[in-house]
């Protein structure tokens, strides 16, 4: 066999295998999600697959991809074939909509702003709370080390940041300069910036770095569950933010792959009693009123600001997290 024939053969094989790789997407969903939902969707996918099989007789294989919310949105824009996205905040799905993969009114297509569950930001501290951290104000004390992921890449970190900002505004009678100073001092106490919420949790719990972790409520409870309540405790601050992690079907992808029906059923199932139970069990706050009441004891009662008070995600993103925004400014002084 000549080299030439060999290379033709190789090229042929490559093409054949490209074809196979491209065709292999039937009866499967890809859910591109953010960091702390790993455990939630492991449970949910199992239940939904069973439900789907009893409804249609088809077996279903749900694939998961997790990472910092912004990063995940970027991958979808770049061509990661997500049938559904379940991200940490609306802005990241807006970015996907801007790229033309789904309509700009995506958020009105499902109930409750397309957020089947909500969450908030709490503090996770070491057992006994040795640094006596009670509220946001304690985070800027000199000897306190705060662990939070990077707001540029992590959705949870952006909620963390905005909750701190809201607190500082409230404590300083709405003075923005003072709020900025507060945030600057807070981030001076941050020794590590992981790219996603899960990395930050690992840094705090496993690497034993820092005195307090700013975490998703569900992530904090999960840490207690994983590592034992004898190691950490949860502190609920006086004020926090209502985090609404949204979900959406990616129209361009499902229409190409022919998976619209199952993708839509998948998201709608999140709003059913069964879906809401799973969310609540994984420490996400359910939306359905009767379940919200049923699980009320599970979640702390805390005063919550909403993203609307920041003028919505686009405004908040532009002001705080874009290049040259407030977050960049506070790092330039260092």
């Amino acid at each position: 066999m000549s080299l030439r024939r060999l290379s033709i053969l190789a090229a042929g094989l490559t093409l054949a295998w490209l074809g196979v790789a491209a065709a292999d997407s039937r009866d499967a969903l890809l859910n591109v999600s953010y960091d702390p939902t790993r455990e939630l969707y492991v449970d949910f996918n199992k239940t939904f697959a069973k439900h789907w099989q009893s409804e249609t007789g088809n077996t279903l294989n749900v694939r998961q991809s997790h990472g910092g919310s912004g990063k995940q949105a970027r991958s979808v824009i770049d061509g990661l074939d997500a049938d559904v996205v379940t991200l940490a905040l609306g802005y990241d799905i807006d970015a996907i909509a801007d790229a033309g993969l789904l309509p700009k009114n995506w958020q009105s297509r499902l109930p409750y702003n397309s957020s089947p569950y909500t969450s908030t930001i709490v503090f996770l501290v070491r057992k006994g709370n040795p640094k006596a951290i009670k509220d946001w104000g304690d985070l800027v004390k000199p000897a306190v080390q705060v662990i939070t992921p990077n707001p540029k890449t992590s959705g949870g970190a952006r909620w963390n940041y905005l909750a701190a900002w809201a607190y500082a505004l409230q404590a300083n009678g709405g003075d923005e300069a003072k709020a900025k100073d507060f945030i600057t001092r807070l981030f001076k106490n941050v020794p590590v910036l992981d790219s996603g919420a899960r990395g930050a949790t690992v840094t705090f719990t496993q690497r034993e770095l820092g005195d307090v972790l700013l975490a998703w409520e569900n992530e904090a409870y999960l840490s207690l569950q994983e590592f034992g309540a004898d190691k950490f405790e949860i502190v609920v601050p006086s004020l926090s933010i209502l985090a609404e992690p949204p979900v959406a079907v990616v129209d361009k992808v499902v229409d190409r792959k022919g998976t619209r029906k199952v993708a839509e059923a998948y998201l709608q199932f999140l709003y059913t009693r069964e879906g809401q139970e799973i969310a609540a069990k994984n420490y996400y706050r359910p939306r359905l009123p009767e379940l919200a009441t049923q699980y009320a004891g599970r979640f702390a009662d805390v005063k919550l600001v909403t993203i609307e008070q920041f003028g919505g995600w686009r405004a908040a993103q532009e002001k705080h997290f874009s290049d040259g925004g407030v977050f960049d400014q506070i790092f330039q002084g260092r």
């Binding site: 970027r74 990077n150 540029k152 890449t153 590590v192 910036l193 790219s195 290049d323 260092r334």
Partner: peptide
């Protein structure tokens, strides 16, 4: 690495972070 901007953020990581922020050109 701690991945702190200006302190423990290495160049390759910065490329990844810029990519993750949709800043392709950057």
């Amino acid at each position: 690495a701690g991945n702190m901007p200006g302190l423990t953020e290495i160049l390759p990581l910065l490329i990844v972070i810029k990519l993750e922020q949709y800043d392709y050109v950057g």
